[in-house]
Simulated assay, not measured.
Amino acid sequence: MVNVRLRPLEEADLPIFERAYSTRAGAGDYQWFGFSQPGRGLAEMGAIGPSGGRLTAVLDGRVVGSVFWFRREWGLPETSWCWEVALHVHAEERGRGIGNHCLKELTRYLFDHTRAWRIQAITDTGNTSSQKMLTRAGFLREGVLRAPQWREGRWHDHLIYSLLRSDVTPALD
């Protein structure tokens, strides 16, 4: 079993993530949106706040990726909101179960520490690794979002998955 620990984003993490996201190989085939402004601070990179945040994934003392969550509204903001989650595992760490472990830890954290009833995730229709990871973590596929994302010169279809508080079972352990 992968023993990844999640912790709040720290100032020392920023250069690590800047390097990781600065190339297509580092960002990954489905998250490369071109170059971004260098020198972003904690707030811009996703420090924890009322609308979401980022946690750093650490394995054996080294940063291996991060998990994110942000608020999505499906109606009145006071009552009809959920968390949307995403993650990034550094290129050299992929394929080892780190993402699956991080996703399970993040969903547990969000259900334990917020009032959210729903957590959702969206992935490119071509990203079969992400789809398998979401399913292993207990998320259910809900449907196709047609052309929601512009990336690399064209629109991409996505799949939407969800996990409800009532779905959570000991299988998340």
Rank of each mutant, 00 (worst) to 15 (best):
C102K: 03
G126D: 08
D60G: 04
W69L: 01
S129H: 13
D29T: 07
C102P: 00
L103R: 11
W155A: 12
V4A: 07
Y161C: 01
A116W: 00
W155K: 14
E92V: 07
R54T: 11
F111R: 03
E78L: 04
P8D: 08
L9A: 00
L42Y: 09
P50L: 14
L9V: 08
E105Q: 15
E78D: 09
C102Y: 11
R5H: 13
G49E: 15
P148G: 00
K104S: 07
I119S: 06
E10G: 05
N3S: 12
Y109S: 11
V58M: 13
L163M: 12
S36V: 13
R62E: 15
S66N: 15
T107E: 04
A171H: 11
R118T: 09
T125V: 15
W83V: 00
G65V: 03
R72A: 08
E18G: 02
G52D: 02
E152Y: 06
A12D: 10
R72G: 03
T23F: 05
I119L: 01
G46C: 08
G46N: 05
S130C: 02
A116D: 10
A86Y: 00
L140S: 07
Q120L: 02
W117R: 13
N127P: 06
T79P: 01
W117T: 12
G143N: 02
W150C: 10
S51N: 14
V4L: 06
Y21L: 14
V64E: 07
R19H: 13
